[in-house]
Simulated assay, not measured.
Amino acid sequence: MSTLEEHVDVGVPIDRAWDSLHRVENYPRFLAGVREARTEAGGRAHLDVEAGGRAREVEAEVSDRAGERVLEWRTTGAPELAGSFSLQPIDDSHTRVQARLKYDPGTVRETFGGPKGFAQANAIERLVRSDLEQFKEYVEQGR
């Protein structure tokens, strides 16, 4: 398994950033490749994803530690992915959003296509950075 960690500082209070992460139905607005997303019973989420020219349905279990401002998720089938978002206040109107992703490069390549090896790792890093920047724009514009 490989682990990727990235962060972005957003110009909103921690409560606003936290609430935005919990609106699964808005994930298509800031997560590349997510065409549709919805919350399901039992702390689950369903995402329709298109990546590498392939459409897939992804089910995930989502849990949070609200007191710690950590939202964790993991897929319940293929591809096997897991991650978290943790939020830390910088001051009253700024928040650091830390994203962590655990993945097997071979599985991601088989499932979604794309390059091998180091090129794939770079592509995933760029995607996560881009998603965080899109989240920043989304939350700061108050959509």
Results as ranks from 00 to 15, higher is better:
residue 127 L to N: 05
residue 21 L to T: 02
residue 106 G to W: 11
residue 39 T to R: 13
residue 43 G to Q: 04
residue 37 A to M: 05
residue 29 R to S: 07
residue 49 V to C: 07
residue 30 F to V: 00
residue 84 S to P: 03
residue 143 R to F: 10
residue 64 D to K: 08
residue 115 P to F: 06
residue 39 T to E: 12
residue 132 L to M: 06
residue 10 V to H: 02
residue 138 Y to I: 05
residue 94 H to N: 14
residue 38 R to M: 06
residue 129 R to C: 01
residue 30 F to E: 00
residue 37 A to Y: 03
residue 5 E to L: 02
residue 25 E to H: 09
residue 94 H to A: 15
residue 55 A to R: 15
residue 21 L to S: 02
residue 80 E to Q: 12
residue 57 E to L: 08
residue 36 E to F: 03
residue 44 R to H: 14
residue 83 G to L: 11
residue 35 R to M: 05
residue 89 P to W: 08
residue 29 R to D: 10
residue 107 T to Y: 01
residue 86 S to F: 05
residue 34 V to R: 01
residue 16 R to H: 06
residue 135 F to Q: 02
residue 17 A to R: 01
residue 87 L to A: 10
residue 127 L to Q: 06
residue 13 P to F: 05
residue 55 A to S: 14
residue 4 L to K: 03
residue 98 Q to V: 15
residue 101 L to D: 06
residue 98 Q to W: 08
residue 1 M to Y: 03
residue 99 A to D: 08
residue 88 Q to E: 15
residue 52 G to K: 09
residue 27 Y to V: 01
residue 116 K to I: 02
residue 132 L to W: 06
residue 57 E to T: 14
residue 71 L to Q: 12
residue 45 A to H: 06
residue 132 L to C: 06
residue 39 T to S: 12
residue 128 V to Q: 02
residue 139 V to N: 03
residue 66 A to H: 13
residue 90 I to T: 13
residue 69 R to W: 07
residue 57 E to D: 12
residue 10 V to L: 01
residue 54 R to V: 11
residue 68 E to Y: 04
residue 33 G to T: 05
residue 106 G to T: 12
residue 3 T to D: 03
residue 72 E to S: 15
residue 58 V to T: 03
residue 132 L to P: 05
